[in-house]
Amino acid sequence: MSSTSTAFAPTHRGLRGSARGRRADPLFRAMLVLAASSVLLILAAMIVRTSIEASPVFASEGIFGFVTGQEWSVGTSRSEVTGTYGAFPFIYGTLKISFIAILLAVPTSIGIALFTNEVAPAWLRKPLIYTIDTLAMVPSVVYALVGLYFFRVVFWGPMGELVAGSPLGEATTFFGPPVLLASYWSAANILTIMILPIITAICRDVFAQVPADERNAAFAMGATRWEVMSRVIVPQSFSGIVGGTMLGLGRALGETLAVAVLIGSSQRWAPQLFFGGDSMTAVIANTFADAHPEAVWALLAIGVTLFFITMSVNIAARLIVARVNRRVGGSVVA
């Protein structure tokens, strides 16, 4: 860097400082501040607005009652809360399918990322990466339809039958019959497909960031490919993987259409995996259009609850990363 302003590197001829440029500087700064603060303002406006609209429902049910209540029975009033609004079935469903999706997607993504970065022959890498990225661009309505008419009939349903009929299905309620096509299982599977590209992309990036020296050192000491991947690359990338997982979880928690179509939308919860349930986003999307005013407040209350759930998931993820880094030390990413 030179003695002049660091913002204008003199090595480029076209970027030499001028009087106009110096006047533009504060203006540009103001624009950036405006852009950054607009996000906060929009966010604040949304939170305040939804919370105010939802407050009659929270007041009537109590926050604890709203979150734990199992009965969702809407009223028809335009001015007061007459129904019973318990959002537990939806919260349960959202968390259940999201975590199952994460459970399925994260190991798969790590596998894909390791394969493309470390194992795949060079000619295969680019096409594979393009394919995965394309998966991320498919609109969710397409996933919804393909899931509804194809995947669940051909794959997920039969897979469910297989598991439910096995000793595992007989021994546990969770994996037990009956097997429905519209189920937590189908919804979790479509979410898995949808979040796979995001997590894979981030894993690929963080794996590529592992210093070549460390990998070469491990190889030089006689480590096998598997040992390098499992002992060097993946541990080094832990916080990056958590970050990618959170991004995937975010999409899973917020995904609406594909879930609404596949989860069964029963407004009830069921302990089984292969039975129909409901999720927070699905009930909003399904019932909003025809809802009476008081039911709209209750749906907004679900929205506020979802907001707090996503926020706490995020904070929890940051804490995990911070704690692990302190223990492990020397992590590449933080």
Binding site: T50, G243, I302, L306, T310, V321
Partner: peptide
């Protein structure tokens, strides 16, 4: 890398919020 994950987390947080509130605000 620090910056990267941080911005990833920030983007994640904001997109979550948008996901959580977006649909409802219009409601």
């Amino acid at each position: 890398m620090r910056m990267f994950t941080r911005s990833v987390a920030a983007i994640a947080a904001l997109s979550l919020l948008a996901a959580a509130c977006g649909g409802d605000d219009t409601a």
